[in-house]
């Protein structure tokens, strides 16, 4: 038997000592075992697998144990072993169930009657390696799924034919107030106001290809509590489990819009103040300038001069009043701003 550099910890779950000894012999020949564990019943198996960092790389499992057997046994072991591959050991009489166990998640099955060290060696290596790849794939899928579910922005996938939600992330559930199950029983039209229906139908009627005709724009959505929100949508088309689907990313811009509106309103008030001041403040000022001009040009003589000085005095006082008024008005504006 060819040796291999890597060695593994193997757990054999087998109630028949004769069968176990046989397997032990074969395993010794394969020289791939680092440490061999033996459990004669489910209870011992449970104890071994329940230990954290038990280091078990593969489980060889006889499906008929004195304290548990068949499908319930397999399921329990799967729960305990998590991602460790399980190879079923079986006799001819139980071969049918062994095949079924593959569908239940077992990695492989071996017929004890034809077992030898070569078969055992191949099965252990193959199943550990294949399982490693499967686990990586599962982790990778989980990562992508997490990207969707833990996105801080609401996201969902819907069926382009039935308009049903196919998947929604936590942020969407949090933001819209519907539970995951409620969402999955709804159509996307149910989060849109009635008057948006024609536009929605038209938009859905258009044929779309992935990464082309991406939709983005501002829409109104309804939360479960009936509140209307303005949202910015981005979406893309793809196939979801064989259906034409669309993934949507939602950004609630209600607050932002409200803020912009408030700023625009304040701008209007400021413009108004500016216009008024341009007319009001400059009136007495222009008068002052005119009066002073004429006086300095020496065009005013005698008693008229006295009138002019009086006009200058009055205009200056008027200007003073107006400027006080401007200050008051801007302070008022500040107060209004605080109320926002």
């Amino acid at each position: 038997m060819r040796g291999t550099e890597k060695r593994y910890n193997v757990l054999v779950v087998e109630d028949n000592p004769g069968d176990y000894l046989l397997i032990e012999d074969f395993l010794e020949e394969t020289i791939i075992v680092k440490k061999l564990h033996w459990a004669e019943n489910f209870n011992t198996t449970k104890q071994i697998l329940s230990k954290k960092n038990n280091g078990i790389d593969i489980i060889l499992l006889d499906l008929s144990l004195p304290d548990k057997e068949g499908e319930p046994l397999l399921k329990e072991i799967q729960l305990l072993s998590q991602d460790t591959p399980i190879v079923i050991l079986t006799g001819y009489s139980d071969a049918d169930f062994a095949i079924k166990s593959l569908a239940l998640g077992a990695s492989d099955y071996l017929l004890k009657d034809v077992l030898n060290s070569t078969v055992l060696y191949k099965s252990i290596l193959y199943n550990i390696e294949r399982n490693r790849i499967l686990v990586n794939l599962k982790k990778s899928e989980q990562r992508y799924s997490d990207l969707f579910h833990f996105s801080p922005l609401p996201m969902w996938v819907f069926d382009r034919d039935t308009l049903k939600f196919l998947d929604v992330n936590d942020a969407a559930i949090e933001h819209y107030g519907y539970s995951y199950e409620e969402f999955l029983n709804m159509e996307i039209s149910q989060i849109r106001p009635k008057d948006d229906m024609p536009a929605l139908k038209e938009s859905l009627g258009k044929e779309r290809k992935p990464m082309k005709n991406l939709v983005h724009g501002e829409f109104t959505h309804l939360k479960k509590n009936g509140a209307r929100i303005r949202v910015e949508i981005r979406s893309n088309n793809f196939e979801y489990k064989g259906h034409p689907a669309e993934i949507m990313l939602v950004n609630d811009i209600t607050e932002r819009n409200r803020h912009i509106e408030a700023v625009e309103q304040q701008n209007e008030i400021l413009k108004d103040i500016a216009w008024t001041q341009s007319h009001m403040v400059r009136a007495p000022l222009a008068r002052l300038m005119g009066l002073v001009n004429l006086l300095s040009e020496g065009k005013i003589e005698g008693d008229k001069k006295k009138d002019f000085y009086e006009h200058i005095q009055n205009s200056a006082e008027e200007l003073d009043e107006i400027i006080k008024g401007v200050v008051d008005k801007s302070q008022q504006f500040e107060i209004n701003k605080d109320k926002e």
Binding site: A274, S278, H279, R282, L285, A286, M289, G290
Partner: peptide, 28 residues
């Protein structure tokens, strides 16, 4: 002849045929 120096007023005046000029007070 206005105390206004508002750009909007000046633009508005420019668009009226009868208006031939826009001066800010005082007249000089």
């Amino acid at each position: 002849l206005s105390s206004s120096t508002d750009r909007l007023d000046i633009e508005k005046a420019e668009n009226i045929d009868l208006v031939k000029g826009f001066f800010s007070k005082p007249l000089k």
